[in-house]
């Protein structure tokens, strides 16, 4: 086919596009994945929010805010990295802000605790459930995000894959926070962050395969 003919064909098939259509698509993919993940969690653990009377509202709000902030920052960075010609540069460091805030809380908790109870703060009673559930439940969200990238054009697939993974992991952690019985910032710093990092690494590994265009 001649290039000029191709140009004519493409111009004829061009429909008006809505501004930010790509962003809506990405958010839609994330939401679809999150719905599937929430259904999975309900299947595994039953109704959410039952542990709030035990943990208290502040601890619950802290977990939810941390995970949601990570998801928001990760999603924004993934969106930027899906636009050709834009680079993240120092913006990646936004991802360190929520853990830094939580680290301050963790330092205060650890300073008050005796040596024996410090290990308790780090590991809580449910670290293995947290790590496993957050990583697994991130998978449908990750696939939803990949679907949401249809209209975006990432040019650094590993970077974008990693950010998609972080976003999926953090969204998964947000949903898991509705069930999590832990109450400390120290637990949040170690296990939530680790689970999100695991999702990010997995995303970087599969990104180049799934996000090619």
């Amino acid at each position: 086919m001649k290039t000029d003919d191709l140009i004519s064909d493409l111009a004829l098939s061009a429909r008006p596009t809505r501004p930010h259509a790509a962003a809506f698509r990405l958010i839609g993919g994330l939401a679809l994945g999150a719905i599937v993940s929430m259904a999975l969690l309900i299947g595994m653990f039953g109704a959410p929010l039952r542990d709030i009377p035990v943990t208290g509202v502040p601890a619950f709000a802290m977990k939810l805010a941390f995970a949601a902030a990570m998801a928001g920052i990760g999603g924004l960075l993934a969106y930027i990295s899906g636009q050709p010609g834009r680079s993240l540069r120092l913006r990646v460091f936004w991802l360190l802000v929520p853990p830094a805030v939580i680290a301050v809380g963790a330092a205060l908790e650890l300073g008050d605790a005796s040596a024996a109870s410090q290990a308790n703060l780090w590991f809580g009673a449910t670290w293995h459930t947290c790590l496993l559930t957050v990583s697994l439940v991130a998978v449908p969200i990750f696939l939803g995000i990949v679907w949401g990238f249809e209209r975006l054009a990432p040019t650094h697939l590993q970077e974008t894959g990693c950010l998609a993974g972080v976003t999926a992991g953090a969204t998964s952690a947000t949903l898991y926070a509705l069930y999590c019985p832990e109450t400390t910032a120290t637990f949040l710093l170690s296990w939530y962050t680790l689970a999100i990092a695991v999702a990010g690494i997995a995303g970087a590994l599969v990104g180049p395969r799934l996000l090619r265009w």
Partner: peptide
Amino acid sequence: LMAIHSKRESYDRSMPFTAWLHAIAR
């Protein structure tokens, strides 16, 4: 050209166009 067309919504109207085009070409 086909990529420009199918991915045209990835262009942010407030950003430089040539940078977008160059990144896709590359």
